[in-house]
Nucleic acid binder design. Structure first.
Lengths: 219, 219
DNA sequence: TGTGGCAAAATTGTTGACGATTTTGTCGAC
DNA sequence: GTCGACAAAATCGTCAACAATTTTGCCACA
């Protein structure tokens, strides 16, 4: 049995492992996160886990109550909608800036991604489509060069990744979504900022509607 | 000499005091924030100061480097512009929602605030105008009921409060700004979400231009 | 059977000291 | 006088133990 690693690297290890566990869904929403337990699991000291939990709290992934420990934060549908409304305007901003700044090579890359998304939908592979989906959103943010907006979006995305995931698996949803994604890509390829922003906002507007609909169905 | 207060309340004290000091400008940008020194100043333990510094780092007000301590974060003009671009779309969102949700009483309140802003400009009182300015932005966010956007905006605002302050004191700036503010108020009073969003964005667009211009002049 | 309260266990929060790292100051060689 | 190396001081990061709090288990009692 190796002694728990400690210090600088240990905290980073714990943070990465915990973030991954929460995002992947290994930890159910609302589950208690006991410091000693996690320290044992990851092979680090309790102090490292504690620091990691504090960081994750700032990211909005976990919730800490005084003297009652940390638990995986649950985001209600209403919160998810509010978050997506913010994503809507921020991704609109990024899309517009991306349309202004994209190089030819970047446009080619986006177009190729669009093709693969269409293919994935045609083949009925929602998991693969979901991956391309996230890659597209990330690419647009990267091309936009809007670091502040990118930071905010990364944080917001983490909080609702579970909802997004559930959405991608709903039948019929990819068929709707892919059209909207292609519209964003084409607007950027045309280097039309206003159209790109509108397309991005229209897409996320559709996501909001889908979120609400999914909630109706499943509750 | 009283012993340093410790524990939960102490951390809150330190956090509030530190945040205030950074925002007010008591601590110059780039200034080193020595934990022991601050602990002594505020009459709390070093652990409390430490926790407060970690929180402020998450808020983007302070920068921490491993084994080198914390310093007041300096935001460059480029960063301030990027931040204001995000504010632009987020405040646009809030303005639109506010136009949808505002009660008659709230509209009256906004209108009154607009009057006082005009008065302050006419009287040549930039400090008073600046206060009303912040109050207006806060009111719109509150009326919008967009808690997520409000959180993001509060954080972003803290990071550039110094730049905003500098801007308010420039001659001629209030005269331009007050017109834009009144336009936002009137759009909300008309309950016209689209117009409110456009007015808010136009205002922050003007702020961005002024930021860049102020940088040109002063450098 | 259900309920209230008390004690034990589990869990988190805090402290003070110690170790590691960076910065500053000094001295001597060139 | 300038530069580099070395030592001393300052400062932050980490830990292990202790204190405070909450939760759980249990039993008497109505």
């Amino acid at each position: 049995m190796s002694a728990p690693r400690a210090g600088e690297a240990a905290k980073q290890t714990a943070l990465a492992a915990l973030r991954r566990a929460v995002l992947i869904g290994d930890m159910a929403p609302g589950q208690r996160l006991v410091e000693a337990e996690l320290a044992d699991t990851f092979g680090v000291t309790r102090a490292s886990v504690r620091a990691a939990l504090i960081d994750l709290t700032a990211e909005g992934l976990v919730e800490r109550i005084h003297n009652r420990g940390a638990r995986v934060r649950v985001v209600s549908i209403d919160e998810a909608v509010a978050i997506t409304e913010c994503r809507m305007v921020l991704e609109g901003l990024c899309a517009a800036k991306a349309a202004e700044r994209a190089t030819d090579a970047q446009i080619d890359q986006l177009t190729g991604l669009g093709q693969r998304m269409r293919q994935a939908v045609a083949d009925g592979e929602p998991m693969k489509y979901s991956t391309f989906n996230q890659e597209l959103h990330r690419s647009v943010r990267e091309i936009s060069g809007q670091f502040v907006a990118t930071d905010l979006l990364t944080r917001l995305n983490g909080q609702i990744v579970r909802h997004q995931f559930r959405l991608a698996l709903r039948s019929g949803r990819p068929q709707v979504s892919v059209v909207e994604h292609v519209a964003i890509i084409e607007a950027i390829a045309r280097r039309d900022p206003a159209a790109a922003e509108l397309a991005a906002r229209a897409h996320l507007h559709s996501v909001i509607a889908a979120l609400r609909a999914a909630d109706e169905d499943e509750s």
